[in-house]
């Protein structure tokens, strides 16, 4: 089995994997980082979104080996020293989650949005989230949370 090496949440990790192992399987099964979820098998739900070299990626849509040498951030690596990232805090404050299953992907995706557009309007947010399905919230409070996080992060 070939070996793969990457940096996950600031720590370098190497593992032997079957070549067909997806990045999401690598994170969940090999590193036991189960915060990244799997909600579909067609790369459409967005429950598995992580950051690869700073950009949001559906971790079910690439092989672990494609992330060789990459910098990966998962939901477990978003808070710093126990302080929630402003996006996580805003989701809590504005009830942007119910069952929590889509949440890690939503949060990671939303963090990436603000890198592209620090002041997105409602339409922009809704359009950006096209690749993240939530069955619980009706998105209302997710949109609100992202707007507030954006405000917070602009300072």
């Amino acid at each position: 089995m070939p070996s793969v090496t990457m940096t996950v949440n600031g720590q370098e990790v190497s593992r032997d994997v079957e070549p067909r192992t997806l990045l999401v399987e690598f994170l969940r099964e090999h590193l036991h980082l189960t915060g990244t979820h799997v909600g579909c098998d067609t790369s459409q739900c967005g429950a598995c979104v992580v950051h690869v070299d700073g950009a949001s990626v559906k971790a079910c849509s690439i092989l672990a080996m494609q992330a060789e040498g990459g910098q990966i951030t998962t939901i477990e690596g978003l808070a710093t020293n126990g302080d929630l990232h402003p996006m996580q805090a805003a989701f809590k404050e504005h009830h942007g989650l119910q069952c929590g299953f889509c949440t890690p992907g939503m949060v990671m995706s939303a963090v990436d949005l603000l890198k592209h557009d620090p002041n997105p309007d409602e339409d922009t947010i809704r359009h950006w989230l096209e690749g993240n399905i939530c069955r619980c919230t009706g998105y209302h409070n997710i949109v609100k949370a992202i707007q507030h996080a954006a405000k917070e992060m602009r300072g």
């Binding site: 969940r28 189960t34 939901i75 989701f91 809590k92 009830h95 989650l97 929590g100 299953f101 949440t103």
Partner: peptide, 19 residues
């Protein structure tokens, strides 16, 4: 009153069956 369960879900520390 904010939700007590949110912290674990927001930090990826929930325990769903497949976890």
């Amino acid at each position: 009153v904010l939700r007590k369960e949110d912290h674990r879900f927001l930090t990826g520390r929930g325990h769903y069956t497949d976890d």
